[in-house]
Structure formats: structure tokens, C-alpha cells
Amino acid sequence: MELMFEKWAGAVSVLNIGATKEEGGTRAKTIQIGGEKTLPFLFAEGALPHKPVIAFEIWDVPPQDWPGEKDVLSWAEICAKDYGAELLCLRLQGSHPDFGNKSAADQAKLVVQLLKKVSLPLVILGCGDDTKDNLVLPACCEAARGERCLIGSATQDSYKTLTAAVLADGHNIIAESPIDINIAKQLNILISDMGLALERIAVNPTIGALGYGLEYAYSIMERARLAGLSGDKTLACPFICFVGQEAWRAKEAKEAGIEQGILWEAITATALIQAGADLLVMRHPKAIEKVKKYIGGLFRS
């Protein structure tokens, strides 16, 4: 029997997170994501040069509804040393007016300390309050200049300030759209119109956890990936998926014992990997371990 292969005109762009000494930063290594030349795991059809990567989510303030360390610096160290994290995702939740209202200067200082403490590449997230993030994130961008972080999130309503800061300080940007392929595409065009190359954008398509719209997110990611592979450069960016925050919001994850929660997070992650997720931000070390194993299995052959 003859196997039919699709010939794709395009490829997913490759995003580099973290700059080593040679590249002007201080990270131990650079993480690369994206670069797919085919749909997920059709190895016979095209190249899949980079494995999906998992970032450990850590917060600058102790989270209220999930367990975390009190001190973010030691938290980061635990992730790096005890769990072998490749990448950290720092959420600056404490900037939010309702969660401590930390100043831009304080947060920038924290970023500098974190960069000193661990040598992993960094994803930095704002608190979700546009006005505050537009003050804090540019300061953090500047503080981390040269480290080639991935910074987010830019939305359709607020992308200009962050794009300008990311552009000035040599980082990458997360473009967030509300499970909408048109808005995802439009936002990428708007950001690239400001001069930031499409190759420096990671798309956050917004996902739902298992049982909470996962299949909808899946289909949106699949559509975007098909467009990207068909040659639409404005949709050929790698995906970043916030698995942990979504999975642990599920009633089934919170209320039926920790084991089920871990599985909930892991299953959500593996489904999204099949949809084309390139970077997964996760919370529970055991869920991360399971998903890493799964990724290893996919790439064994």
C-alpha cells in the first residue's frame, strides 16, 4: 500500500527563548520551540525538529488557591534543582492592584534577582490588569535586557506598549487571543506592523481544560496550524498553552483528590500536544513528569 503524504508550503517559525553568554545573555542554554514542517507527529511526512517544552509556573506572591512556595527565588531553585525544569514561567501576580499592587521598580528588581539565582530561560507574565502591566512589564523587559525572555501577554486591546518594550530590549512576545483564529491572526499582524518579527511571537490561543472546552481549543489550534503550514506566515507561530491554570480550575481536578488533579493536568497537556502545542506552562511536578515521559515516548522512534 502506498502512503499519501501532504506537501506543505510553509513551516512553523522557530522561537528562541533565553540567550547564552555568546549571545549576550547569562542563560545556561537556549530553548528552541516550533519549526514543525508537518502536523503533530507525522514524522514520516515532515520534520518536527523541536520537542514540546514544559515551563514550570511560579508566582512572585504565594498563590491562594494552589500550593506554591512563599519565596519565589527558592521556588525557582526547587524547580531547577529538584525537578530538572528546562524553563520557568514567572507570573507577576503581585503587581495586580488587588494582590499587593507591587511597583514596577520592585518587580524589575525581582526579575534581576531571579535571573541571578537560576540560569534557566524565562517566561515573564503580567498580572492581567492592562494599566498596571503596561507599567510593570516594560520595566521588567529593561531589567532583563539581552536575556531574550518570552514576555506576555499582548492582547488586541493592549499590545502597543508591550510590543515596543519587547522590541527595544530584544525579547519575544506572547500574543493572546480568545479562542479565535481571526483575532490571533490580526494580533500577529498588528504586532509585526510595529516592527517585531513574526518569528518572535508565540501565540497563546487560550485553551480550556479537559471537560471545559478542550476540543474547541483543539480545533482552533488545528485550524491555525493548518493555515500556517499552508503558507500563511501570520499564523505560523508556535503555541504556548497555559495548561496548569486551566486544569486546576476544573472542579474534577480540585475536589477528587490530588491524584485526579494531576491526571487532569496531564491529560489536558497531552491532548494539546496532539493539537500542536509547543510550550506548555504547567503547575504540578508530577503532572509535568508524566507529560515529559509522554513527549519522550512520542520522540523515541
Partner: peptide
């Protein structure tokens, strides 16, 4: 304006 129709700050 940008391509969304949002005005320059």
C-alpha cells in the same frame, strides 16, 4: 490608526 481601527495613543 492601526489595522483594528484603534487610534495612536
Amino acid at each position: 490608526i492601526d489595522k483594528l481601527g484603534r487610534m495612536k495613543s
